[in-house]
């Protein structure tokens, strides 16, 4: 946690509520996007992000300032998502996602949406834990250590889940969409 964030936390805890917005503002897109990647639904993503921010404000006093504030927020969001049941995506959600951008776009967007739909269908084959690890490490770009901190797992456990997730996705892509690898590049 940097000095600026530390000062903002102090201000919020001393009663200056307006300091909360600059504290969480750098992560507002990150939280919403991650929630969307987990739930694959915009409305659910907004609810998850809102609950995350409310919990962060409520429990800010128990935040350990030696830790990363961003990782703390991500950890809360993962807990919120799990608390909502960590649902797997249904076909309707995948279709909605695939056509979300394509509805009013050119032909290229239709093709991209189809590729995205196929890839997301492969991610559906992962367990909730594997999906969390895969999203944080491979899509959000968190390091193994950061992923372990967010999910409260050991680095070894993260590597095991990550290896399984990548192996499953490779098998699913090969079985279901053999031409997908060329399209994704």
């Amino acid at each position: 946690m940097d000095d600026k964030e530390s000062r903002l936390v102090e201000l919020v805890l001393s009663g200056r509520k307006e300091a909360f917005e600059p504290l969480v503002s750098p992560y507002r897109s990150l939280l919403l996007t991650l929630a969307f990647r987990l739930s694959r639904n915009v409305e659910d993503a907004k609810e998850i992000s809102q609950e995350t921010l409310m919990r962060a404000f409520r429990y800010l006093g128990s935040f350990d300032r030696k830790r990363s504030f961003k990782n703390w927020l991500l950890q809360i969001e993962m807990n919120v998502w799990r608390g909502r049941g960590a649902r797997t995506w249904d076909e309707r959600t995948l279709h909605e996602l695939a056509t979300r951008d394509a509805a009013d776009g050119p032909e290229e967007k239709l093709a991209e949406a189809e590729v995205r739909r196929k890839l997301l269908a492969c991610l559906q084959g992962l367990s909730p834990r594997e999906r969390e690890v895969f999203l944080l490490r491979d899509i959000e770009g968190r390091s193994i250590k950061e992923t372990a901190e967010v999910l409260r797992l050991s680095s070894l456990s993260i590597r095991v889940h990550l290896s399984k997730a990548r192996g499953k996705i490779r098998m699913l892509v090969k079985e279901r969409f053999p031409g997908l690898m060329g399209e994704g590049r």
């Binding site: 990647r37 991209e112 590729v115 995205r116 890839l119 991610l123 491979d138 899509i139 990548r166 996705i169 490779r170 892509v173 997908l180 690898m181 399209e183 994704g184 590049r185």
Partner: peptide
């Protein structure tokens, strides 16, 4: 290849 594709789309 698969990782590149997923990262690119995501």
């Amino acid at each position: 290849s698969i990782l590149d594709a997923v990262r690119g789309i995501a």
